[in-house]
């Protein structure tokens, strides 16, 4: 197997995620797209981790960082959904292009 297989898969997922973040209006769907981006990063991390582990048996940094990212993602989703909920409660809508009170 080539390292590039995984890296390219991750790149594709990442770009799909970016598209989702930019194109979606619904707050929950934006958060889902962000999850796609984070997963792409994780695939990268684990792939590189496996690559290094093959050379150095004691090195599992890739996995460790992937775990950290998962934990951060969990926190992010928690707070993100809380925000979406708050927006919904205040405006009866979760369209994030309505939330533009900071415009100049």
């Amino acid at each position: 197997m080539f390292l590039n297989q995984f890296l390219l898969l991750a790149a594709i997922l990442f770009c799909i995620g970016v598209y989702g973040v930019l194109a979606r209006k619904n707050g929950v769907l934006v958060l889902m797209s962000i999850e796609l981006i984070l997963n792409a990063v994780n695939i990268n991390l684990v792939a590189f981790g496996a690559y290094w582990h093959a050379n150095d048996m004691a090195n599992v940094s890739g996995q460790v960082f992937a775990l950290f990212v998962i934990a951060v993602a969990a926190a992010e989703v928690g707070v993100g959904l809380a925000l979406v909920l708050l927006i919904y409660r205040n405006r009866q809508s979760i369209d994030i292009d309505d939330v533009d009170m900071l415009k100049g």
Partner: peptide, 8 residues
């Protein structure tokens, strides 16, 4: 004009 307030 750029400062639309729209996060996306």
């Amino acid at each position: 004009k750029i400062q639309t307030g729209k996060v996306q």
